[in-house]
Every structure is written in structure tokens, then in C-alpha cells.
Amino acid sequence: MNNFEFVKPSTVEEASAALQSEGAQALGGGQTLLPTMKQRLASPETLVSLTGVEGMVGVSASDGTVTVGGTTTHAQVAAEAASAYPALAALAGQIGDPAVRNRGTIGGSLANNDPAACYPSAALGSGASISTNKRNIAADDYFQGMFETALEEDEIITSVSFPVPEAASYQKFLQPASRFALTGVFVAKFPGGVRVAVTGASNNGVFRWTEAEEALSKEFRADALMDLRINHLNMISDLHGSQEYRAHLVGVMTRRAVESAS
């Protein structure tokens, strides 16, 4: 790994200032960035650790919204969001393994936007709002393709606010070697309609399956999806599964999510 300068600011302002320097990059829990740096796919000159920044950690709930600080670990969300937003907590509790969950953060996961990551489906499926040091970004505008987001270079995710649905569920079909989702579906039922977000399947990263949303908004039952098929042409194909297989999994996991939504 190439060397770099390590800085640990304690306020958002200091962190923003540190990120202005050439070659500076934010460090969350490091559970994606460190392996990437070991492979020299990233070689920052300065790493700005966010874990010491005040006011960016923890879970709070009020008025039907759960807000998660940008450096909150997956383990904290699994524990602290369990009563306010059980489907979100369950998703966090299935990420990777315990050691990964003790370090990895929601901000890092959403900034990275891995096409097989879990959190992007919860953010898009819940219609979350992603707050940064500059603005609030609606999840519908935030995800812009595989590893692509609306974030600017020096933008920091400070918190993520999730409207809490009446019922929701995340169903992950595990890719057991990587521990990511081979395909995962987040279904959320709101008074105004149902949202369905799919991860691990598309070459464009997380996406909403609008046909399923329409069918489920009329009738929230797994059977309402029986005649729906999703086109496989833009799906990921790799040694773990073909495009057709992933398209099939999207249907299966969506039906399971509807059946288990609570």
C-alpha cells in the first residue's frame, strides 16, 4: 500500500477543510477502502478519518423518521434501530460478518455504492434523504449507477434519514464467499404506495422495480407478482450467476420480502 498522511479531525468543518487538499479522501470504517488500497486501486495522499467527527454517530427516531449518523457502524444500526425500524436493523445485521459490522459505516457504504451492497437498497427502498456537509439529496437522485453517486469529491455524508414504512423487509440471497448480496430486494409499504429496490442484480447498481411497485401498491400480496417477469438484459452476469438467474432471483426475493414484511 502506498503511504499517506493520516488525519483525524473532530468537526465536520475541519474534515471538509482537510478534504480540500489534493489527493485527500475520506475514511469511514475502512472495510472497503483498506482492501482497495492494499490492491493499489486507491492511493490517497491524505486520509481523513471521519470516526472522530462529533455529531456524526448514532441512531435517533422521531415523527416517523429514523436518522442514522454517517459514521454509525452496521453493528450499531442493527442494535439501535431494532425497535424503530426493524427491517433496516435486520439488513444492517446481515452485512458481512461481526468484525466488518463493528467497523463498517452507513456513510461509507452509501458513498461506495457497490452494486451488490445492502444499504443502497434500504435507502432507495425507503425513499431516504442523504444529508451531506453541503445539502440533502433524495435517494432517487443519489444513486447514479455502479459505484456512482451524486456526491462531489469533497462531500461528506453526515447522516441519512429514513421515513419509516408501515411494513418492510430486506431479503438477501447471500453470495457466501464475498458475503455481499448475490441479489437482494428491499420492499417498503407506505400509506401512499409500495417501493421495491433491488441490489446485486443490475449493471447500473441499485434500482427500483417500478412494475412490482405498481402491482404491490394495488394489492400487497406476493401473489400480485405472479405474472411479473423482469427483463434480464441489463443484469449482472458473473461466475456466481447468469443474467437469467439474477432476473429470476429478483422475482423470488421480492415475493419473499412481501411475505415477510412486518
Binding site: 472495510q31 453493528a75 463493528n102 464475498s178
Partner: peptide, 25 residues
Amino acid sequence: TSQCGACVVHVNGKAVKSCTMFAAE
């Protein structure tokens, strides 16, 4: 690749992969 867990230690009481954390952290 942060996958094997042979390096697990506890930092402030929590299990972490010591190969996936900088000493400075």
C-alpha cells in the same frame, strides 16, 4: 482481502479485523 478473520483482535471491546484498520486509528 479482509475475509479470513485470522487477524481478529478486540479494539475497545469489539471484535475487529486488525488487518483492516490502521494502527493510527
